[in-house]
């Protein structure tokens, strides 16, 4: 079965083709495509209007790269939520129209759920595993027992880790989005130079909190010590405070659940320090760590096509009354 996946839950418009036999055939994200240039370069990244402009060229490109004609698409998978309703509706309406016009089944996929299984496009991972989903909008731990058996173990009480990076970067004058800028600068910095607080919360809590860290950076930058800093050291130290908590809490969760497998997912899973420390500390603890490639960490439609194919192959499709939703059943 050949499934076209469509994703428009946030800033990027994405489409991909996944085939039961041939695997992932194409994976296109609008921000990597020249379509933006065709509309005058800088495009406000957030507008659902931009999704409307991008969706047709992105889907066509995904089909072309997969050498797949529209008639050869056996099913359509689309992100139904969570996300910005206006953005989601663009992908959803397009997917529904296509499914209706071609008489093909459609599957609505949860964006967070799709991230949790993205690793399976690249690696074989035995169930169950503990997954850390960490991005600009989410920081949550899950126990993944199988394709329809996911349990939320804990999540952030305030800010997401990616948001903490972005806000710190802005505060340090590194621009937005800042996660990558911090990652790069931190390589030339000393992660133990400044002691930013680690929010462990109560012992064994699977929850996260990064709001206090944000405030402590502000306090630090207005202090005497903070005025004479090397920005590389601040970036490295700040990143270390975030990464240490992410790694520590994920390993504790794996130990508590008695599961020796950890999977990273989401945009912040591309952070090099997080990847290095998770691998090193995982191997010390006897836990196998699975890291998706960068293209599968950030938002993509490959994971949507993949999960949709699983569902449609099992004969489980949605009706054309499928609707977008803002809040996920995989968050609180």
């Amino acid at each position: 079965m050949r499934v076209l996946g469509i994703e428009s839950s946030c800033d990027d418009t994405a489409a991909a083709v996944y085939d039961s036999a041939g695997g992932l055939l194409s994976n296109v994200v609008a921000s990597q495509v020249a379509v933006h240039e065709a509309y005058g370069g800088v495009v406000p990244e957030l507008a659902s209007r931009e999704h409307i402009r991008s969706i047709v060229p992105v889907v066509e490109q995904a089909l072309a790269r997969a050498k797949t004609d529209r008639d050869d698409v056996d099913g359509v998978a689309v992100t139904a939520g969570p996300g910005l309703i206006g953005s989601l509706l663009v992908g959803l309406c397009f997917a529904k129209s296509l499914a209706f016009a071609r008489g093909r089944p459609i599957a609505g996929v949860d964006h967070l759920e799709a991230h949790l299984f993205a690793i399976l496009l690249e690696r074989c991972v035995e169930f169950p595993y503990v997954a850390l989903l960490v991005s600009g909008g989410h920081t949550s731990l899950f126990r993944v027992e199988g394709f329809d058996a996911v349990r939320l173990l804990g999540g952030t009480r305030d800010d997401a880790a990616g948001e903490a990076f972005d806000k710190a970067a802005k505060r340090l004058g590194l621009g937005y989005p800042g996660g990558v800028a911090i990652d790069n600068l931190a390589r030339q910095g000393d992660p133990s130079r400044f002691a930013f607080p680690r929010a462990w919360l109560s012992k064994d809590s699977p929850d996260f909190s990064f709001s206090g860290l944000k405030t402590s950076l502000r306090t630090f930058l207005s202090s005497a010590e903070g005025r004479a800093f090397r920005v590389e050291d601040v970036a490295a130290s700040f990143q270390e405070a975030v990464v240490e908590v992410l790694v520590g809490k994920t390993l504790s969760a794996a130990a508590r659940e008695g599961i020796p497998r950890i999977v990273l997912a989401g945009g912040v899973a591309a952070n090099s320090r997080l990847r290095d420390r998770m691998e090193a500390e995982g191997s010390r603890a006897g836990v196998e760590v699975f890291l998706p490639s960068r293209a599968l960490c950030t938002d993509n439609a490959a994971m949507v096509a993949f999960l949709g194919e699983r569902r449609l192959s099992a004969g489980r499709s949605d009706g054309l009354d499928l609707n977008a939703y803002a809040a996920s059943r995989f968050s609180r």
Partner: peptide
């Protein structure tokens, strides 16, 4: 929680509650 990333989060309370965060908008 912070809606910076999603910009708008809607909650079903006694009244519909929209939690909006325009940090990323210019």
């Amino acid at each position: 929680v912070s809606p910076t990333f999603t910009i708008v989060t809607e909650h079903e309370g006694a009244l519909p509650l929209y939690h909006v965060d325009l940090y990323r908008l210019s």
